[in-house]
C-alpha cells in the first residue's frame, strides 16, 4: 500500500492528483472552488467574524455572514471556537442580545447534528407528509435538466444555480429560494434537490442540508416555505438579477402564489 503525497508543485498538480484518485468523478466536472481547504484559511475567516453586524444583516445576500460552513462541516473549526470568539466580540457591557442571532445559527447546526445522531434514517426519508395538498407521488423523482444547466425561466434562480456550481457556496437565503423553487415551483421531490446541493456545496452536510430541505418542503415543518419576488428583491438585490421581467414565475402576492403553487393546499 502506497502512502499518498502531501506536497504538490501547485494547486493544479493537487487537483490532477485528486482526479486520479477519483475514478467515479465524471470528466465533465471541471469546476474547483477558490475556497481553499486547511485550518489557516478557516482561521482567517474565523478571525473576521463580526457577530453584531451579522445580527443586523444576515438575511441579506450581501450581509456580514462568516463563510465558515465548509470548515465547520469538516471539523477544521468547531462550533465551540466560533461561539467563544463571538462572546468575546459581543458588546462590552455583556449584553448578549446583539450576538444572539449568530450564536443561534451555530446552534441550528448543533440541533441538526443531534437529530441526525438520533435518527440517521430521517436523512433520505420523508419525516412527515407534505403539507402542500400534494402527496409525495405528485413530485418528480429527478431534477429537470434546465435546473441542472441553469436555464430555468427565472434569472435569479439561474444565478443561484451557477453560483452553487462554480463556488460551492450559497448564502442561506439563496439556499432557501433555490430549494423552494425546486420543490414547490417545479414540484420535484426534495431528495433530488438535496442530492444536487450535496454534489456542489463544499459544506454539504447530510443533516443541515437534507433536514433544511425537508423544512422547506414541509415534511419536517408545519407548512411549506415559499417566497415572492418582492422578498427576493429586498434580500437578494443587487447580487442576483431580481427584475420582474426575467423572474415572472416568482411575482405575485403570497396569497396569489399560494393558490398557484398549492391549489389543493393547506398553507395559511
Amino acid at each position: 500500500m502506497e502512502v499518498q503525497p502531501k506536497t504538490f508543485a501547485d494547486r493544479d498538480a493537487l487537483i490532477a492528483h485528486v482526479r486520479a484518485l477519483s475514478p467515479s468523478l465524471s470528466p465533465e466536472e471541471t469546476f474547483v472552488s477558490d475556497t481553499k481547504g486547511g485550518r489557516d484559511a478557516g482561521q482567517a475567516l474565523l478571525q473576521n467574524i463580526d457577530p453584531i453586524a451579522y445580527g443586523r444583516s444576515r438575511d441579506y445576500l450581501g450581509g456580514a455572514v462568516s463563510y465558515l460552513s465548509p470548515y465547520i462541516r469538516h471539523g477544521l473549526i468547531t462550533l465551540n471556537e466560533a461561539r467563544n470568539l463571538a462572546l468575546e466580540r459581543g458588546p462590552e457591557d455583556g449584553d448578549a442580545k446583539p450576538i444572539e442571532k449568530f450564536i443561534q445559527e451555530l446552534a441550528w447546526r448543533d440541533f441538526w447534528q443531534r437529530v441526525y445522531q438520533q435518527n440517521p434514517d430521517w436523512i433520505w426519508h420523508d419525516i412527515e407528509d407534505y403539507k402542500t395538498g400534494f402527496t409525495a407521488e405528485d413530485y418528480a423523482d429527478t431534477l429537470p435538466d434546465d435546473i441542472r444547466q441553469a436555464q430555468t425561466d427565472c434569472a435569479a434562480i439561474n444565478y443561484f444555480i451557477t453560483s452553487l456550481q462554480t463556488t460551492g457556496y450559497l448564502h442561506n437565503h439563496a439556499r432557501m429560494y433555490l430549494a423552494a423553487y425546486i420543490v414547490h415551483w417545479r414540484r420535484v421531490k426534495w431528495q433530488a434537490g438535496a442530492r444536487f446541493f450535496l454534489a456542489h456545496l463544499l459544506d454539504g452536510d447530510p443533516a443541515s442540508n437534507n433536514l433544511s430541505f425537508q423544512w422547506v418542503a414541509s415534511t419536517f415543518s408545519n407548512k411549506p416555505y415559499f417566497f415572492n419576488l418582492e422578498n427576493l428583491q429586498k434580500y437578494a438585490h443587487p447580487q442576483a438579477p431580481c427584475d420582474a421581467a426575467s423572474n415572472q414565475p416568482l411575482s405575485g402576492s403570497y396569497e396569489a402564489l399560494a393558490e398557484k403553487l398549492f391549489p389543493y393546499g393547506e398553507p395559511a
Partner: peptide, 23 residues
Amino acid sequence: DYGLKRRVFLYESLLELPVEIYA
C-alpha cells in the same frame, strides 16, 4: 455525492494534518 470541488477541499485540508493518506 461528493464532486470535484469537495474532494479538492478535503485533500487540501489533509495536507497539514498529522496523518498518512492511503487510497
